[in-house]
């Protein structure tokens, strides 16, 4: 464990608002502890910028424990940076070395326009789910008993694995086509793997895929970068499941 902190050069995308043009700016930071999280390192920079009377760097963040899906930084060309199975907020500075230059950019995708600096608009994800990301059941509580339909543990576990998606958009950001298929596949899979979700599975797949295309996301060309960069390890199998649901729905229509 080194006691002395790291000195780093940050190259950060700055953009005033969605209408302005952005550019990379350079900022030095000093004495960064390896135990800091990446966002805490940016907090240090921002504190410094405020003291100098400059505008701090805007970035999305909230829970800072890897579950809300708000943080979204493209670090040295990788969504959520060099570590695996972590979000930006869980990335720690021990992954970097003294003297490093770090490039920090927002998610880049047509469907995710930049709002300011490193913040993008991901409401396209919400709209895809408005189109079918639900099971049509009323919230009366008067459904059948929770144990009335046993579900095979394997299916329940698979549904859970798909449902661990935090909607951060790293899959889109790491795809050369800016495809959202891993995200949409995971949502569709979670429901279609459960008996409760089977009833509407076909319409769900058709409607969500249609909205996905409308939002301007690209197609899947099986590169697999999304799976590698996904902080929750969502599997490509979900895309296959989505395609199957979509195809069988299209044929039967």
């Amino acid at each position: 464990m080194s006691e002395k902190g790291m000195n780093l050069t940050l190259k950060i995308w700055r953009q005033k608002d969605s209408k302005s043009k952005g550019k990379m700016e350079t900022y030095p930071v000093t004495n960064i502890s390896e135990h800091m999280s990446f966002l805490e390192m940016l907090d240090v920079l921002n504190e410094q910028l405020v003291e100098e009377g400059k505008e701090p760097v805007a970035f999305d963040h909230d829970c800072r424990e890897g579950i809300c899906g708000m943080c979204s930084l493209h670090i040295n060309g990788e969504a959520h940076g060099p570590d695996r199975r972590v979000t930006t907020c869980q990335l720690h500075m021990r992954m970097f070395n003294d003297g490093d230059t770090i490039h920090i950019e927002p998610w880049r995708a047509k469907a995710f326009p930049v709002i300011k600096d490193l913040i993008v608009d991901r409401s396209a994800f919400d709209r895809i789910q408005h189109a079918g990301g639900f099971i049509s059941v009323n919230t009366s509580g008067n459904t059948i008993d929770a144990n009335a339909i046993p579900i095979e543990k394997e299916d329940a576990d698979e549904a859970f694995n798909a449902a661990t998606c935090i909607g951060c958009g790293a899959c889109v950001a790491s795809c050369k086509n800016a495809s959202a298929m891993l995200f949409v596949g995971a949502k569709i899979s979670q429901f279609s793997l459960l008996p409760q979700g089977q009833v509407e599975a076909k319409n769900r797949a058709l409607n969500m895929v249609k909205q996905m295309d409308l939002e301007g996301f690209g197609n899947c060309t099986n590169t697999g970068a999304c799976e590698v960069q996904c902080p929750k390890g969502i599997s490509l199998d979900n895309i296959a499941r989505m395609n199957r649901d979509f195809l069988s729905a299209s044929v039967k229509k």
Partner: peptide, 19 residues
């Protein structure tokens, strides 16, 4: 719990398929 299961919340299950 009934409501959430109906909505597709994937709670942990035992091998017998029950919660």
């Amino acid at each position: 719990i009934d409501q959430c299961v109906a909505q597709g919340v994937p709670f942990a299950r035992e091998y017998g398929g029950l919660l």
